[in-house]
Design a protein around this nucleic acid. Structure first.
Lengths: 216, 216
DNA sequence: GCGTAACCTTACGCACGAGTAGGTATGCTC
DNA sequence: GAGCATACCTACTCGTGCGTAAGGTTACGC
């Protein structure tokens, strides 16, 4: 009972590259909705409009598939940020543009990206993958701070620098979570709020000082 | 072939309350090491020096067991923080004491608590549980800020307040992760760094202003 | 027009681990 | 010292879902 009697087969035959993107789209969607473990390869395959063995043939095991998702989304995000924050600007300007790009990205990929990011934290195999990406971000932020500090004639130990950058990145991720959970919220406004916290600090805020985005 | 021939049984018989704590200890350890899914009930039972059905009899299913862990550890942490930050102090003093208590707690429970906290983020069933706890923290921080602001004669919308508090909590959790990953790091010093970020902000830091813990 | 390679399918094997059935020992109460 | 409740065990069932074997079908080069 193996053979089908050639009813209406004519499934669209598509080149590998196209199918792979469809699969990744489906995978991101299902992973983010269900979580890594609750997501089934069958559902991903079905959602991609393809059968399971194709997924295995093209993207490999479930773990490899997840890593592929992580890579694609991560790269997209990094490019969005890097493209926005050119390095020959003053630090506050760079930070602001980077934040705006980041929250814009998250806002545009709410269900997909943010939740997928949340997934990767807990699961042992992917924590490292994610840590690497986060590490790159931390490095960038730390470098930015270091530049600005030197320009002001100050010096800070590398660990201090790293930790501060880490905290800033953590706060930003946290607000991204918040944004993903509040569909009515505005990414731009969220970026502004983050800028207030990061750049002025609570003490400044307490004295009524408020940072505003530059016109344009 | 069901019966054992009564060789040297004499397993210590212990009251329920004691066993439950042993089981929770083991569960926290295994969950944090392996992650929720990779952890097996068999390993937890073995680590607790008991057999699996006992775990089911006392603490219920795997999910219920995990929630029980979450509750115990969460309660302990909340108590540690609440005990340290009395409410009739100036805001900066309260914040500092709270942070110190928090990082002290994380430092003392590195492998156990921090990683367990990381687990709960991703998994659908527990995200809510954790969100509630985090919500309580955010509320406290927001209330603190609000108080201080009113004292200075300023007013801020509730959403702004919530978001700032959220960012602060996120930054703190992020540094807790960092602390958990750096066994050589000092919790006290980490708390100080967090205080710098939260209270002074990057802008202040750039002008060489540094917050220091009060003597004593 | 025909082979061959890439595309795509159905239908299954199989391990792993949550949860349970059913039985044994031990201490407490009267 | 009989009865009863509680502590505790070994040894299973069984669903779930990853990953695969084996075979069908379409496009494309020559």
């Amino acid at each position: 009972m193996l053979a089908r009697v050639s009813s209406t087969p004519t499934f669209k035959r598509l080149p590998r590259a196209v199918r792979e993107q469809q699969m990744l789209d489906a995978a991101v969607k299902v992973f983010s909705r269900r979580g890594f473990h609750a997501a089934s390869m069958d559902e991903i395959a079905e959602d991609a409009g393809i059968s399971k063995p194709m997924v295995y043939a093209y993207l490999g095991t479930k773990e490899e598939l997840f890593v592929a998702c992580l890579h694609r989304e991560g790269t997209r995000m990094m490019e969005a940020i890097a493209g926005a924050a050119a390095s020959d600007l003053p630090a506050d300007e760079r930070l602001w543009r980077g934040l705006r790009a980041f929250f814009g990205f998250v806002g545009a990929h709410r269900d997909g990206w943010a939740v997928l990011y949340r997934q990767a934290r807990g699961e042992q195999p992917f924590a490292g993958e994610l840590a690497t990406m986060r590490g790159r971000l931390v490095e960038v932020v730390a470098g930015m701070l270091d530049n600005a500090l030197r320009a002001e004639g100050h010096e800070v130990g590398p660990t201090d620098l790293e930790v501060v950058a880490y905290a800033l990145v953590g706060a930003t991720e946290s607000l991204a979570d918040w944004l993903a959970d509040h569909p009515e919220a505005d990414p731009e406004k969220t970026a502004t709020r983050m800028m207030n916290v990061a750049w002025l600090g609570a003490a400044q805020l307490l004295h009524g000082v408020t940072w505003r985005p530059p016109a344009g």
